[in-house]
Write a protein that binds this DNA or RNA. Structure first.
Lengths: 363, 363
DNA sequence: TTGAAAGCGCTAACAA
DNA sequence: TTGTTAGCGCTTTCAA
């Protein structure tokens, strides 16, 4: 049985390409050869027109464009990249903690904007602090030959990226510094920002300040933890280990931990919540305990609507758009041949005083 | 001058591939040929081992794997896809309003999770309701031969996607129904959800209910607008056109519009904010006017921390995770050969009563 | 079980 | 200005 020939079908008969009438489905995509045949020009002429190379007569340009439109031709980028010398794919890989987390999403968008200006497409993936997922994503992106990779790394030993770097993949670390690997990085000043937050509470007279932190395995979480100790030590305030909770993976865990502290014999007079989801958990706990006006709270990383809560939440804000933009620019600079020594770019944080962090102790 | 040969360099001499000592930078990536040469086997044998095809002796498998590891070989997916019959790229394109918007980001994450389970990588891009950006992204993703495309469309006439669909690209629309194109869609019940929100306010006795909406050019915004009229008509409540504001593109615009309404001669007794950013704008306006306890508010789409505001914000919640998951599953079903008629899947919304929507009129 | 040859859709290099 | 040939890194086909 011979299947029907329907409109729009590409017919290749004796090397001649023609267009049928009908409205078939699942046609093969037309190739440059098809366009060349229909326009009755050489393959290379089509390539020149499609890529905007000079040196094609207006007449042939018109014929090629007309044929391309007729066939609804869309070039195959992968095929071109394969042969092209230097073989850029015009893609970037972005590896985030979670594309749905507001901080990650803001980074993503900033990177996308820089990339879009160069017509570079962006792969994104979520790692959830799982080093295996990170490696899987890196392997995939490498197999796709992304020109650049922006990573918020979950892993510790980053030397497995060396081969990719040497193969010409530009790499930038975001939010965390690289270990055992020489690449650029853009990070918030986690330690100093945290010390500032805690110092702010200490300045109001707080001494029993709880620290709620993310996975201790995560470098940025450790730095924020260290900032807490820095400030406490600078004020000669003793650290009560029972007020230090780490490894809180989401708002729920943070809420429970905060509740436990509030219900203990000698509760904290203030909280330092070292991450956005943790801040949300602490806010919920304070509400449940109806202590939001008596126990102080400073969060690290800003939270939407934090200014409209009662009391409004004081935070140390990061600047994810600036971080993402800088990271993308570094990536493109390296791709463009920048061979200068790698650097770690530190983006300062901002203390935003709103109310929750200014509640005095013993109220 | 002859450049130094350093460790790890791939040397191709007389067709023989060997490994040098040193720590060179910018090596060419090893190819299957290099692995084959080092392992002293045929090219196809390497291909079989890398792709896990059966029928290779254990001995040769070991030799190939060892050589691959030694060279830090990473296969080039694009090259494989080019020759492979049916040519799947194992990629998806996701076109969103803004990857940083919480609703879009939640969709994105849900799609990513379904894709990751199949080891499919995801391109994402933001359109900002600009049809030109949509077309540019679609063209790029088509040029990259994504197997599937999930779009929150900004454009109106979607027939330009027909050629891609016919070329075998699976397509699903999210949040909006396709016009002039036969593809699957997954949408919230915008109209009924909005009618329910407005009906809720009418049930409390409100008659002067303001509608604040997104770009009227956007289909989902129009449906929410229609839902408002449905409910008003059902209650035989007159619509005051001065209480209907559209084309609000961000929280700031929504805040100004709400302020203007509140300061007018006969202000509304309730607001229906038909989108998450608009809801935030209205909340800010009500706070500024100190009317948050006197003017009711129901929002469409939930907002983080809405439950902790004073008063807590009543919303009609969408289920972005469910929408995204369903959309991705439809995409994969089509790729797997599902030829059943296309459908528009409607995901119901949920009214979450929290307080702001239960403020009676004339308070 | 193994591998040589052809070719995917395109660009590079070169010839006309 | 135009076209021809080779070949990118891989998979397919087919022969050994």
């Amino acid at each position: 049985m011979i299947s029907a020939i329907s409109k729009g079908m590409i017919l290749r008969v004796n090397g001649q390409t023609t267009l049928s009438e009908g409205d078939g489905a699942d046609l093969p995509r037309p190739t440059m050869r098809d366009v060349a045949a229909l326009a009755r020009v050489g393959l290379k002429t089509v390539s020149r027109v499609i890529n905007g190379e000079p040196g094609v007569s207006l007449e042939l340009q018109a014929r090629v464009r007309h044929a391309a439109r007729q066939l609804d031709y869309h070039p195959n980028l992968a095929a071109g990249q394969l042969r092209r010398i230097g073989g850029r794919t015009a893609t970037l890989g972005v590896i985030l903690e979670d594309v749905a987390n507001p901080f990650s999403a803001a980074l993503h968008r900033a990177i996308e904007d820089v990339a879009a200006a160069r017509n570079v497409d962006v792969f994104a993936g979520s790692v959830e602090e799982n080093p295996d997922r990170e490696r899987r994503l890196v392997a995939n992106f490498a197999a796709r030959r992304v020109d650049g990779l922006a990573v918020v790394p979950a892993s510790h030993d980053h030397s497995y990226l060396l081969a990719h770097k040497q193969a010409g993949m530009a790499i930038v670390f975001i939010d965390r510094r690289p270990d055992f690997l020489d690449v650029d990085a853009v990070v918030s000043n986690h330690r100093q920002g945290s010390a500032r937050a805690v110092g702010h509470l200490l300045g109001l007279g707080h001494r029993r300040i709880a620290f709620l932190g993310d996975l201790a395995a995560v470098q940025s979480a450790r730095e924020r933890h260290a900032g807490y100790f820095d400030a406490m030590a600078a004020a000669a305030a003793p650290v009560d280990p029972s007020l230090v909770c780490q490894d809180l993976r989401d708002s729920g865990a943070a809420e429970s931990a905060a509740m436990r502290l509030l219900e203990a014999d000698s509760p904290p007079s203030a909280f330092f919540a070292s991450q956005n989801l943790i801040t949300i958990g602490v806010i919920r706990a304070l509400r449940r305990a109806e202590l939001q006006d008596r126990v102080a709270l400073v969060g690290f990383d800003d939270v939407v609507l934090a200014d409209l809560l009662d009391p409004p939440v004081t935070v140390v804000a990061q600047d994810p758009r600036k971080i993402g933009t800088r990271a993308a620019e570094l990536l493109f600079a390296r791709m463009d041949g920048d061979r200068s020594p790698t650097r770690c770019h530190v983006i300062e944080t901002t203390l935003i005083v709103r109310g929750s962090g200014e509640i005095p102790p013993g109220r």
